[in-house]
Design a protein around this nucleic acid. Structure first.
Lengths: 197, 197, 197, 197
DNA sequence: TATGAATGAGCATTCATTCAT
DNA sequence: GATGAATGAATGCTCATTCAT
């Protein structure tokens, strides 16, 4: 098979990452073997290694996808609308994230938790996570500042500190969803509103 | 063997777990090898296997310690005092957890994140985590109900939903502390208070 | 396909062998991969396999070229002139071999050593090497006999035994040149003459 | 099995090297697989890796043994006696080397040729070979100087150049023995004497 | 005809666990 | 009991070769 388009190549990489993500959601990064990824992707060993330098490369790419997806989601969110209140931002975000999770049978959230664990021990992934999470948090900080200008939040509040809490609500939700399994954006946001009232 | 031996046995198990936890904080559960644990504990392979059935047994025990520590902390907390408001409960809790983390050079938090990841893929650890986290959350729910009785919280609030949010603040803090590294109980609680005001 | 194609085919084979020889000089036969040969030759995998049945075929061809070059050299040598003494034959030969080596950046000698190693373990190459080296040695034996007839060597000498020694001087020189790097035909032949005097 | 003596460890390493040398004599360094070495040594994979860091470590050790053995042989030789003439030194040396080869079913010579090939492509082994061969050659140079003092060799000869030739006789003999198979120290030395007379 | 992506058997190496001493 | 050398299945990865386009 001669000359394959760049698009085809990207599509194949994506296929492999999706297959590998299924494995990671099920078994975690280090209990997923390359044989698992190969089987799940339906390709041969050599083919997979033609698209990725090795297992670490795949782990890196999945962690990036997983952590980056959330950042992308929030960035889009902020572009689109002008939420009245930071809590609304959290709400819309949770709904989007939940929708994204449903598309992947909940795998995305599970992979996310694995990515956090990897970020704790792998310096490169730690740097990546720090950057992406920092970006999300600074977006939330901007939302807070805007709300203060709008008068929907007290101007006495420290935007950075509030953003720390707002940000924490996101991984907190994910963990609760994945481990306890009984949280929904609706219940969660309603609890948040109750708490704030 | 007399009872001294039993105490000795427990102490040795603890030593091994502490050594293994250092490894896990550094490398994660599955990149930590038994050779690492053996080296770090200063014992022989045979000795370690005399105290634990195998690597899984050690992983189980560390995950349990890590997740259980938090539950224990909150249980103690509730026994001792009658916080005026759920946010105070969160505050006291974060301080205690931070103190505990400091004692272990921050390892406890890192191991905690690894334990979450393990809870996602190992049914036994998942069950354990579900139980412990559920217990913590139901304690928070009781705190909410108490606050409602005290009149410090609106009785219109759904205690279960509020507890979901309060609980989420804990792992959210841990993750932010471990990855972003710039949160303290003080900044975090002040942000929370700002948000609620 | 017309005859031009046949010449073209031979030229292409030659190109591939030259490229592969560079690889072999650098990495040896078995650390040279087909990917190396393909890259170095600038052709595609399919093209290379159009000219050679496989890697073994290329190894065979290179070993043959390498061992055969020496044989060819000596054959030419004997045709041309009537050396006064076997030592002169050795001298002229070393000079020619050195010149040939220079043309290929010293690769030819390095490939030669690899070919010896291959002749030790591969029966086909062993047979080839035995034949070629045997031919060279028998040429040297003829040179000795001629010298005896000329009176420049004692007729008491055993031509076969003397040829063994004369022949040994050739690979001995190559090895010294490749490993120790400080021998020249001039120094070597002068040493030989000193020894004989 | 606790505590094993250093001698036992050395003996095991030696066993593995002997087994691996048999493989290398048969298949060369890079066609010898670790599975071959493991099978031939009768140990398990883990055991072999307990004595050597990896395949490269084994290759290194075998190459060193093989090249060093010759150096050792000559060093012993020079200590013992005062040969009348450099040719006698070569003779005694060849006999010793042949005896050593016989002890290993001819493997030692074959491994030697493989080691030369490795010295051409591996910088570490090249350095090792250069050192050992240089040592042997300088011993031969001393023998020449001694012969000049004794009057058995012309003082006009350049000892370094003569040593180059004397040294070359050794690998030359080995290659002829291994490839052509019809040389003996006796025939070879008789040819040398004929040539010199 | 030429291409180069795909194949998959084979390789070096690791590591949880055992058990003879 | 304590030791640590030995085990061997499992793992990540390579590479000679093929064949659809």
């Amino acid at each position: 098979m001669p000359k394959v388009t760049e698009e085809h190549r990207t599509a194949r990489r994506e296929e492999i990452l999706v297959a590998a993500s299924r494995c990671v959601a099920r078994d975690g990064f280090h209990k997923t073997t390359m044989a698992d990824v190969i089987r799940e992707s339906g390709l041969s060993a050599g083919a997979v290694y033609g698209y990725f330098k090795g297992k670490n490369d795949i782990i890196r790419a999945i962690a990036e996808r997983s952590i980056g997806a959330v950042a992308q989601l929030l960035a889009d969110l902020v572009e689109r609308a002008e939420p009245v209140h930071p809590v609304d931002a959290v709400e819309v975000f949770l709904e989007q994230m939940t929708a994204l999770a449903r598309e992947t049978d909940g795998d995305m959230l599970k992979v996310g938790v694995q990515a956090w664990a990897e970020a704790v021990r792998d310096p490169d992934i730690h740097a990546l996570a720090k950057e992406k999470m920092g970006a999300v948090r600074s977006v939330l900080e901007k939302v807070v500042r805007r709300a203060q200008r709008d008068g929907t939040m007290s101007s006495a509040a420290d935007p950075a500190a509030v953003a720390q809490v707002l940000f924490a609500l996101l991984p907190g939700f994910v963990l609760e969803a994945v481990i306890l399994g009984d949280v929904t954006p609706a219940s969660y946001v309603s609890g948040l509103r109750d708490l704030l009232s």
